[in-house]
Design a protein around this nucleic acid. Structure first.
Lengths: 108, 108
DNA sequence: TTGACCAATCAAGAAAACTTGATATTATCC
DNA sequence: GGATAATATCAAGTTTTCTTGATTGGTCAA
């Protein structure tokens, strides 16, 4: 008999991991109403530039941010779709609406 | 002039961090339709018992799980409220509906 | 082309998270 | 009480993630 197929949660884990850092959440907050260049973010967050760059990369690799170069500046923006994806993933994990009776243990 | 007050994202970061691990997401998955004792989870996930215990603790400390001892067994269950909290936190981070024009940079 | 500026990358170290095997704890059964 | 079972905790090692300072790459202007 084949073992039961398990849902693959690697994408969800990666996505939530990108959201698991205060700096990164503040970056997202700053981008909520439009794109910003890196220097604006550096200013607003008051952190070292390579540190911000690291976190921007993490967010970008998770698909949360897009970037765009314009001359000397690089602008980052939120990727709308990814937030919908995150909502969907979260909703899959939510407890089922109907509270089922405690099932009999299948072990022990 | 006072610097602008920043939203505190420490709770959100902690919560998302708890969700950033595949094992923990599988645990949540297993609990979606009701509580389960640790031995059931150990069986289903096929991982070492202290390892599962570690992840259960992480989930519990984040408020995602509750536990209940019954004799020799300990039952874990999802905390419904925390999922609503997660949805709310995620929704705060979502890009604003109206796409604003690119603002003029405030620096550089 | 030289210099200045914005941003990414790198290398090294520090800190945090995770895994593993051994041990402790709590409850039950004989 | 003593043995046993379920779970938690601990200590040690490993891996991953993050931070920092230095360097590099790309763009513009003089």
């Amino acid at each position: 008999m084949a073992t039961a197929a398990r849902t693959d949660y690697s994408r969800a884990a990666r996505l939530f991991h990108a959201l698991s850092d205060e700096i990164r959440l503040e970056v997202i907050d700053l981008l909520r109403d439009g794109e910003r260049c890196v220097c604006e973010l550096t200013d607003a967050l008051d952190i070292a530039q390579p540190r911000l760059s690291w976190h921007l990369k993490a967010l970008k690799e998770a698909g949360i941010l897009t970037d765009r170069r314009e001359g000397r500046w690089v602008y980052y923006a939120l990727a709308r779709d990814t937030f919908e994806e995150a909502e969907a993933l979260l909703s899959v994990l939510k407890p089922n609406a109907r509270r089922l009776p405690t099932r009999g243990s299948s072990c022990c």
